[in-house]
Nucleic acid binder design. Structure first.
Length: 467
RNA sequence: GGCGGCGUAGCCAAGCGGUUAAGGCGAGGGACUGCAAAUCCCUUAUUCCCCGGUUCGAAUCCGGGCGCCGCCUCCA
């Protein structure tokens, strides 16, 4: 399998499963100062799907998504609410975990929190100071970017260009404006940990390095996150990790494209965001997942209610096929697949895997899945043989499982008594229809429709569904 | 200004040197129906932002435009 890596600026081959015992995968998770917005959900869905696809192909994945629970934004929010940073972090960690579940993500192997690793961070900073890659200035510790020759290799930036166009305000304490804080001295009222440089807290760029090293070793197989993290966050991680270990920090760097709104990046600071939980509540987990997976993970994707609605309908269509196929084929589970159909099915299945093996092209894979559904429908229409449909339905479900799609058994049903009641109404209405009393028959249909119960008169009788 | 990406049907979106240019949504036509709804079937890009070039052959490669976006500051 090939994945396009930011560092190589091109595709990198992942060694086949079995050649290596486990694959370590690290994704930059949220800062817990508020509910996550739907843009934050993109890496959580896309890399969850990638992880599960790799697992389905025989890889053993150790999947880490960190939780940043030390940060300026948390401190600010606490001040606004008259609460403590600990309380804010605790609360939004809980909310985040709930949202992660609602997005249909498989729980990560580890979900480390920065607060639990402060000691290790102090150790790492100490090493950097000892090696001459970092310096102490008035209770702060800064990483000296000029001390790391590879600085800029991930983002393709040149130190001198950066300085020329720099929007960074030079800080007195820094030797170079691009140096970044490893340790920040505590201001009055701020959370603090004791350190050799005085009380303070770690800078953001250090936590991922430390947690990744602790849980996955010095070199990660895959490091992933949003494309807005390439610079400076991931660049700074590389500098710290590699300055200490002398080994590559990660083999493959994956960066998902941004979610946009009318072409502009969704961001809390721009105010153009929607909370993930609200979008999931409105459109459902699978519509959100389908929405993301119907666009290649590296490209920007534009958010709109219409786009989500479109995804919801596409998901709906597949479920309609699955329900029909599984119903029609009941009792014919072992019916042999006609040769013609088997061939087409096989072709689509190969296509599905080819697409995913090639830079995890989920839109292509979804198209292959839709193609299978269409092949099934066409076959049933042409040959009048519906028995074969069950095999297709099974294949679709099997292939879609790692993507977190099409695993629901069926639409939620009503209680037995209610169903009997609807059955009674349907029977009465059909009596009226036979007598030609369409006026009353239509009224019953309309009233039920208003209650969310849709009646359909088919040649074989009337069936009903929930809207 | 520097670095990176994108521009494919009404909309969304794959394809990245030879395919009938995937797939979804929408739209149009048909079947079914008392009328509907739903469903099913069929149709829907001689052409890939523009202009040159390379090639037997380009949406795909190269050069030059035009337009849009991201990063360079916290950010998934």
């Amino acid at each position: 399998m090939r994945l396009w890596s930011t560092l190589e600026r091109g595709p990198v081959e992942i060694p086949p499963p079995g050649e290596k015992k486990t694959v370590g995968m690290y994704v930059c998770g949220p800062t817990v100062y508020d509910y996550i917005h739907i843009g934050n959900a993109r890496p959580l869905i896309v890399f969850d799907a990638l992880r599960r696809y790799l697992e389905s192909r025989g890889y053993e994945i150790v999947y880490v998504v960190n939780i940043t629970d030390i940060d300026d934004k948390i401190i600010n929010r606490a001040a606004e609410e008259g609460s403590s940073p600990e309380e804010i972090a605790e609360r939004f960690t809980r909310e985040y975990l709930e949202d992660l579940g609602a997005l249909g993500a498989k729980p990560p192997t580890y979900q480390p929190r920065a607060r639990a690793y402060v000691d290790k961070m102090i150790e790492l900073i100490g090493e950097l100071v000892a090696k001459g890659n970092a310096y102490v200035a008035d209770g702060d510790v800064y990483f000296a970017v000029r001390s790391f020759p590879g600085y800029g290799k991930l983002s393709g930036k040149d130190l001198d260009d950066l300085r020329a166009g720099s929007r960074v305000e030079p800080e007195e304490k820094k030797r170079d404006p691009l140096d970044f804080a490893l340790w920040k001295a505590a201001k009055p009222g701020e959370p603090r940990w004791p350190s050799p440089w005085g009380p303070g807290r770690p800078g953001w760029h250090t936590e991922c390095v430390v947690m990744a090293r602790e849980l996955l070793g010095e070199t990660l197989d895959i490091h992933a996150g949003g494309s807005d993290l390439v610079f400076p966050h991931h660049e700074n991680e590389i500098a710290q990790a590699e300055a200490v270990s002398g080994k590559p920090f990660a083999r493959i760097w994956l960066h998902n494209g941004m979610l946009t709104v009318r072409g502009e990046k969704m961001a809390k600071s721009l105010g153009n965001f929607a909370y993930a939980r609200d979008v999931v509540r409105l459109f459902g987990t699978e519509a959100v997942r389908y929405f993301y997976l119907s666009r290649h993970w590296r490209k920007p994707l534009d958010f709109s209610p219409e786009a989500l609605e479109e995804a919801r309908k596409a998901v709906e269509g597949v479920y309609r096929f699955l329900a029909e196929a599984e119903l029609a084929a009941e009792g014919n589970e072992n019916a042999a697949l006609p040769e013609k159909l088997a061939g087409e099915l096989k072709l689509r299945e190969e296509k599905f895997h080819e697409e995913l093996e090639d830079d995890f092209n989920t839109p292509g894979a979804l198209a292959a899945l839709q193609g299978m559904v269409n092949a099934g429908k066409r076959f049933a229409a042409e040959e009048g043989d519906r028995r074969a449909l069950r095999a297709i339905a099974g294949k679709v479900r099997e292939l879609a499982a790692p993507l977190g799609l099409f695993q629901e058994e069926r639409a939620p049903s009503l209680s037995g008594k209610t169903e009997e009641l609807i059955g009674l109404l349907v029977e009465l209405r059909n009596g009226l229809r036979r007598e030609g009393n369409f006026q009353l028959a239509d009224r019953i249909r309309e009233k039920l429709s208003a209650l969310g119960i849709e009646l359909k008169d088919t040649p074989h009788g009337t069936i009903w569904t929930l809207k």
